[in-house]
């Protein structure tokens, strides 16, 4: 029997529904999460099954309801907060970085904050500079938070279920361009541990380390490279923290060439950290400096040709990888 295929959005919804059935403490808090099911319709149907006490519509108060989730998580609930666009995490920064991330440590391990923040990332939706950013590096910088970047429907379901069961604050970034992407997802209950990378495609000549939206780009580039006789390995860390350093370093040692791809801003971002980890761990096995590709260091423009120029594409990744391999 062929494996069931569902969309990324359906996988997210299925993970939430299963966890809410399993554990009455799990609830959803955010703007337009109930009847509307979010602007992306990711949560459609949940309020009908679980009621308005567990799928809670809020005013447009990101700091306020994120703070409420922190306190509720400390005192017995397991809230999943919905931040409509990743750009709006800026409004929740004190609640996440100073409160949620530090309550366990500052209390000497007495209080725990088992909450999840779900939000989005990703450009090319023609949404301009305040609805297109990929700001996961900001949370990855803060000790006490975990950051998850699913790249397939299968990963989305398994990682979200693990995030909800985690005893720590976890931020879960969904690529809004990927919501309609279909893939095989088991109907059973499964989790994917946070901190375990996944080799999405095996190869020998070059490693493409890619996160979230960039995994599909890397896989597309790998197909183009194969036609040129270049075998690319695609490694998806799946979480920026905890980070599976070993899988990245092992792949780098095997192929000796690495490009790191991430849709966040390149400067001081996730690509910088991953490249540094690989350079430190595999330096003597590398044939070339680790290359980084991310969003350009500009506010994301509206005009389609301009916006398209800001993010790596299959073609630009293919070109960079081919140059790197041919130079050897």
């Amino acid at each position: 029997m062929p494996e069931r295929e569902i969309t990324f959005a359906q996988a997210v919804r299925e993970a939430l529904a299963e966890e809410m059935r399993r554990d009455a403490r799990v609830c959803i808090i955010g703007e337009d999460v109930a009847e509307a099911g979010t602007p992306f319709k990711v949560l459609s149907g949940l309020v009908e099954e679980f009621g308005a006490q567990r799928v809670v519509d809020t005013p447009i108060s990101e700091a306020g309801f994120t703070g409420v989730a922190v306190g509720a998580a400390m005192t017995g609930l397991r809230p999943v907060v919905d931040i409509m666009f990743g750009d709006f995490i800026t409004l929740t920064m004190d609640q996440m970085a100073n409160q949620a991330a530090k309550a366990h440590y500052m209390s000497g391990g007495h209080w725990k904050v088992p909450m999840v923040m779900r939000t989005t990332l990703g450009a090319t939706r023609r949404s301009a500079a305040q609805h297109s950013q990929s700001l996961h590096a900001w949370f990855s910088h803060v000790p006490g938070l975990k950051v998850v970047l699913p790249s397939t429907p299968y990963d989305a379901k398994g990682l979200l279920k693990a995030a909800i069961r985690d005893e720590n604050p976890v931020v879960f970034f969904e690529d809004k361009m990927m919501y309609k992407l279909k893939g095989p997802v088991p109907e059973d209950d499964y989790t994917i541990p946070l901190g375990v990378a996944d080799v999405k495609r095996a190869g020998d000549d070059i490693t493409l380390v890619a996160t979230s939206s960039m995994v599909q780009v890397a896989l597309g580039a790998a197909i183009l490279l194969e036609k040129e006789g270049i075998s690319a390995e695609v490694v998806d860390p799946r979480t920026t923290w905890p980070l599976d350093e070993k899988t990245l370093i092992d792949s780098a040692k095997k192929t000796s060439r690495v490009i790191v791809l991430d849709e966040g801003y390149g400067r001081y971002g996730v690509t910088a950290e991953l490249a540094a980890v690989i350079a430190e761990g595999a330096f003597y096995d590398l044939d070339a400096p680790v290359r980084r590709m991310g969003a350009m260091h500009v506010p994301i423009p509206f005009s389609p040709p301009l916006e398209d120029a800001t993010v790596p594409t299959e073609q630009t990744v293919f070109d960079a990888a081919r140059r790197m391999c041919k130079a050897a």
Partner: peptide
């Protein structure tokens, strides 16, 4: 639930504890 060194930093936490109590 903790003293807080951010002025106003615990207003969300207190309200969240009340939210959980009610829930």
């Amino acid at each position: 639930l903790g003293a807080n060194a951010i002025v106003g930093g615990s207003v969300g936490i207190a309200t969240g504890a009340a939210f959980a109590a009610k829930n």
